[in-house]
């Protein structure tokens, strides 16, 4: 792992007490974690709760993270274990999770998180995806190639430069321009 590894840079900052670095780590991985959880948990409404548990576990365990394995490998393991624990706890629980009418007024358990899985939220997510994919489809060929090789194939700038037969600086610029073009379409939607 090189010093350029963004995860390591963020982790070092978290270990020094910079909480904002942890929020960046969450923002970076939240979708991937949710994606892993969908393979284990059928009820999509429960995924935000379990994802939250994953990140809380990560937060608590991060001071002891020594970087012996890649951060994502470590995170993946925690996610899978948390999903499995969740499933076994569900099988032990009685099938109903109704809240007593008297308690309903005082019930505040993860209300906001449950809204994430609402039909409106799902529709909005679908719209975001469509806008992003349309924006990618409209990219000039060289920008599309650069960002595809980077995001889908995980290639380094150096490798992309060799494949595209251009300087590394050009690759860096193309990838950035591709991101900016997609972001131009996404930003108004996400900020609405």
């Amino acid at each position: 792992m090189s010093e350029r590894d963004l995860d390591l840079q963020l982790i070092h900052r978290i270990q020094r007490g910079e909480q904002i670095a942890f929020t960046l780590l969450v923002r970076k991985y939240q979708n991937r974690i949710a994606n892993i959880l969908t393979r284990y948990i059928r009820n999509s409404g429960d995924i935000p709760d379990v994802a939250q548990e994953v990140f809380i576990k990560v937060y608590k365990a991060l001071p002891g993270f020594r970087g012996e394995s890649a951060f994502y490998t470590w995170l993946y393991r925690i996610t899978v274990n948390t999903a499995k624990n969740y499933l076994s706890s569900q099988s032990r629980r009685p099938p109903t999770s109704d809240i007593d009418a008297l308690d309903a007024d005082h019930y505040d358990g993860s209300d906001a998180l449950r809204d994430i899985g609402s039909p409106e939220a799902l529709l909005r997510s679908e719209e975001i995806k469509n806008v992003a994919l349309n924006a990618i489809a409209q990219l000039p060929a060289e920008l599309k190639a650069a960002i595809t090789l980077r995001e889908l194939e995980g290639m380094s700038y150096d490798t992309i430069a060799k494949i595209e037969n251009c300087p590394i600086g050009t690759v860096r610029s193309r990838i950035f321009r591709a991101r900016e073009a997609i972001d131009k379409q996404l930003k108004p939607l996400l900020e609405a």
């Binding site: 939240q30 949710a34 994606n35 935000p48 939250q52 990140f55 939220a121 799902l122 997510s125 939607l189």
Partner: peptide, 15 residues
């Protein structure tokens, strides 16, 4: 890798 959950949310705030 982006399921239709958490897509437009800053999940870190909840965490």
């Amino acid at each position: 890798e982006a399921p239709n959950i958490l897509l437009d949310i800053d999940f870190s705030a909840f965490v």
